[in-house]
């Protein structure tokens, strides 16, 4: 557990390198919600091949790495209503905002984009507030 930050840093460097490859090779901003959203709402039918290839990579690498770890618990909530509501909020929110943690966060902040920085401030504040309400306020009441 004490090494969590080291693995966080290594993972972060890998994520950023992925974004760098996507930008320098394909000339595109690596945003998970945009790549996925453009496929499902039909707004970006062109480039479907590279989008699909990207998503296959995201899905496949954890499959290959999983045996090294044995078990990985994601600790996701058992409440399906919470999962569904959260999923819909993430889907609508990221498409309205045109980006998520990867697009606005990683790619936006690194180029000092005002939109990326503002978006990141708002989703972190909203996320922090939500966790505070559900973990502390409701129990305290």
């Amino acid at each position: 557990m004490e090494q969590d930050w080291i693995w966080g840093l290594i993972g972060g460097l890998l994520i950023g390198t992925g974004g760098a490859v996507y930008l320098l090779a394909n000339g595109r901003v690596m945003g998970a919600s945009g790549i996925l959203g453009g496929l499902v709402d039909g707004s970006e039918r062109h480039h479907w091949r590279e989008r699909t290839a990207f998503l296959v990579g995201v899905l496949l690498l954890p499959v290959l790495l999983y045996p090294l770890y044995g078990t990985v618990d994601t600790h996701i909530t058992e409440s399906w209503p919470v999962i569904i509501v959260a999923g819909v909020m993430v889907g609508i929110g990221t498409r309205l905002a045109n980006g998520c943690t990867s697009g606005h966060g990683v790619c936006g902040i690194s180029r000092l984009s005002l939109r990326g920085i503002v978006s990141t401030v708002f989703y972190i504040l909203a996320g922090g507030l939500t966790v505070a309400v559900f973990r502390h306020l409701l129990e305290w009441i």
Binding site: A86, V90, G93, T94, C100, T101, F122, Y123, V131
Partner: peptide, 24 residues
């Protein structure tokens, strides 16, 4: 941008997942 990011953040806090990790 503001409404979307806020909505996304609330969902992110609720489930602890954002689009990338959800797929991974």
């Amino acid at each position: 941008l503001i409404i979307g990011s806020t909505l996304f953040g609330a969902g992110w806090g609720l489930a602890g997942l954002c689009p990338g990790p959800a797929i991974a």
